[in-house]
Computed example of a mutant assay.
Amino acid sequence: MPFDVDTYLKALDHRGPTAPTLETLRSLHHRHLATFPYDSALNAGRGTALWAGVDIDLDAAFDAIVLGGRGGVCYELSGLFRALLGALGFEVGVFGAGIRQMDGSFGPDLEHVFNHVRLDGEVHLVDVGFVGPSYLEPLRLSPEVQRQHGSRFRVVAADGYQVVERGVPSGAWQAVYRFRDRPRDLAEWQAPSAELEEFARALAGAAILVRGRSFATGQRVLIGKRLLTVDGGQETVRVLTDPAEHERVVADILRAGSTR
């Protein structure tokens, strides 16, 4: 089925206004994260060509994800949402980001694809394709502390980048990812840099699957067997050593939401 706004909104169970306002954007953003999970298993077999399909086939992605109920990777989920927002009259564009790694360094600038919306003179970060933990609702591009469902966020300038930071339970701030404050063109991903290709090879070699889905007050992020849950700003971490439990958690995160 071709891309269809009404069907998309029905899949999101969005019954409120659709005018291009911040209220609409918040509702759609939160519902999208809860409806369509992130699933890195979809990158299996792509090798270093992880971003080859960044300019998505809109109808095919709509059929597989919105109608078929499967998860997606960042550029699929963000591409679909960008099309929806554009159809509703939002001024929407693309950003590229480098995600904070376990050692505190950042990945390449084009590692992650997400969106931004210009609304009432402000830029709002819009990201429905990041596994988390991260923001559930749009985030103003501002160093001011923004609270969402018990969690704290801010966007600060550092070394020529804007850095999305999340307040962790200790009270400290931890980077989520960094990005250049300039719109990106999807063509920039078609000829990946040597740094981006090297990064893709490292990801393929690690072979650790990452899945995630949000819920009303938080997110569940499964990295290999490590399950991180953020609920109302409180975090818990468990290692799923029981294969049956691991299988159940994966199935729950990726549970089908098919509208067929």
Rank of each mutant, 00 (worst) to 15 (best):
G129D: 07
V155Y: 09
D181Y: 08
S170H: 05
F106R: 05
P20H: 01
S170V: 04
D55S: 11
A207R: 15
D63P: 02
G224P: 10
V117F: 11
V221H: 11
R46I: 11
L9P: 10
E76N: 09
A87V: 10
F36S: 06
L80M: 05
A244H: 06
R180A: 14
T35D: 07
R152I: 07
A256S: 15
A191F: 08
R180F: 00
G16R: 15
Q190P: 01
H116P: 05
A64H: 07
E235G: 02
G132D: 04
V155R: 06
E235C: 12
G150P: 04
P17R: 14
V128Q: 02
D127F: 14
I223G: 02
R15D: 11
A157Y: 02
G53T: 09
Q146R: 04
V54T: 14
G224E: 12
V168H: 01
G171K: 08
F106C: 05
G167C: 03
L9V: 09
R211C: 10
Q148D: 10
A49F: 02
L28M: 05
L67T: 02
P17V: 07
R118P: 00
L28E: 11
S134T: 13
Q162L: 07
E247K: 15
P243D: 10
D242V: 01
D231P: 09
A172L: 08
V221C: 05
R255F: 07
I56P: 10
V156F: 04
D109V: 10
V155K: 10
S40N: 15
F179K: 08
L84C: 02
E144G: 00
V210D: 13
E144A: 13
Q148W: 02
A200T: 11
D13R: 15
F179N: 06
A60C: 00
F3I: 11
C74I: 02
A34N: 09
D39W: 04
Y75L: 03
G107N: 12
V128F: 14
Y38G: 13
A61W: 01
E195M: 04
L110G: 03
R152L: 10
A41P: 09
T24I: 02
P192C: 07
A60I: 00
E91G: 04
L12K: 10
A64I: 00
A244D: 13
G16D: 15
R166W: 00
L125W: 11
L186P: 01
V5G: 08
R26H: 13
G205D: 13
K10M: 06
F199T: 03
W173P: 08
H124S: 06
M1D: 12
R70W: 05
G121N: 12
E198T: 13
E247R: 15
R201C: 07
A207M: 09
R248P: 09
V5L: 10
L50Y: 05
C74V: 06
I253G: 03
P243S: 00
G232M: 14
E137L: 12
L196D: 07
P183K: 01
Q146T: 11
